[in-house]
């Protein structure tokens, strides 16, 4: 009991620090892609104190609440948005035995809690009483629900291959061959997983709910100061969490030669994060109808067929069907 509380406390604080610097990594990476330098002035070398400076700036900024806002909903939204993003890390095993709770249904817990994010997002959009925010949250509902299904189906393929819902068991099953290296099935599933990740994270080219040219900043347009910081923190934490899930499911988690397990794990999660960022800075936004059509007519049938093919292959291999 005491141990769990201490581990949770340490994990939470380390996560906040890591995620803060993930934003820095993204800014530097994006800057390189656009032949800029990125944050440079605050802290030497290379402006490494920039995330801290940003956090302090947001902390001391005035908190503005719109006059016609639905106050309880508006004020609660950032918290409701933040809690699931951190809660998903409860079942993530960073190395053998290093994690808060290695549940036998770990991946299910991850998917369930991460699907709660939409409630906070919706509360923010509704509570602000702003047409852009409301439109954004309506789009969010459409998009996130559409892409949650292919996301779950893509995540199901490693589960089928490993034969377990326990995240550490899925990693252990990859000690011979990472699931991303599985012939055909692995690569297709990984590609579907990445696309669904980008869509469920609302990044370009699927960022219709914060399309700057149409909706200013989407559901968070009325938020300022610390509440804005909380929403940003929640978004990046969730994104990092999903990257961790991808590393666990397809890239073999902590497995790797030489370096200690948690370092490998962090590197792999960062790799997926940068992959998503790379897409973000390379493509243009696509239209709402194209996004929905792509989900229901391409991605969903494709992942469904993939799940069936994987199931058939697993059954043939284990000799249930001859």
């Amino acid at each position: 009991m005491m141990r769990d509380v201490v581990v949770a406390f340490v994990l939470l604080n380390v996560l906040v620090l890591v995620v803060t610097y993930v934003t820095y990594v993204e800014r530097k990476f994006a800057a390189r892609m656009q032949s800029r330098i990125g944050p440079y002035r605050v802290g030497r070398p290379h402006g490494w104190l920039q995330p801290i400076a940003d956090a302090i700036k947001l902390l001391i900024k005035e908190d503005i609440i719109p006059a016609m806002a639905d106050r309880p909903v508006y004020n609660l939204a950032p918290i409701v948005f933040l809690i699931p993003s951190f809660l998903i890390f409860a079942t993530v095993p960073f190395a053998p035995g290093l994690g808060l709770a290695d549940l036998n249904i770990g991946i299910l817990f991850f998917l369930a809690v991460s699907s709660l994010e939409i409630v906070g997002l919706f509360m923010g959009g509704w509570g602000s009483n702003n047409k852009y925010a409301l439109l954004s949250s309506m789009r969010a509902v459409n998009q996130i629900i559409s892409y949650e299904i292919p996301f779950v189906l893509a995540a199901l393929i490693p589960v089928l291959l490993a034969g377990s819902l326990r995240l550490s068991a899925i990693v252990q099953a990859q000690s011979g061959l990472w699931f991303v290296a599985y012939p055909v099935i692995g690569q297709l599933a990984f590609a579907a997983f990445i696309v669904a990740t980008i869509a469920s994270e609302n990044r370009v080219p699927f960022d219709i709910l914060e399309a700057e040219s149409e909706l200013v900043a989407g559901f968070r347009v009325e938020y300022s100061g610390m509440k804005f910081a909380l929403i940003q923190l929640a978004e990046y934490t969730h994104m990092f969490g999903v990257s961790c899930l991808g590393a666990l499911l397809f890239l073999g988690g902590w497995l790797g030669p030489g370096l200690p397990g948690p370092v490998w794990f962090l590197l792999k999660a960062l790799f997926i994060f940068l992959l998503v960022t790379w897409v973000r800075w390379s493509f243009v936004r696509i239209r709402v109808d194209q996004i929905l059509r792509f989900s229901w007519k391409v991605l969903l049938p494709a992942t469904l067929i993939l799940v069936m093919a994987t199931g058939l292959w697993v059954a043939l291999r284990s000799g249930h069907v001859s």
């Binding site: 299910l108 998917l111 369930a112 809690v113 699907s115 709660l116 939409i118 409630v119 629900i145 949650e148």
Partner: peptide, 8 residues
């Protein structure tokens, strides 16, 4: 329950 009811 969480995925289907509370989420979707």
């Amino acid at each position: 329950q969480i995925i289907i009811y509370a989420g979707a």
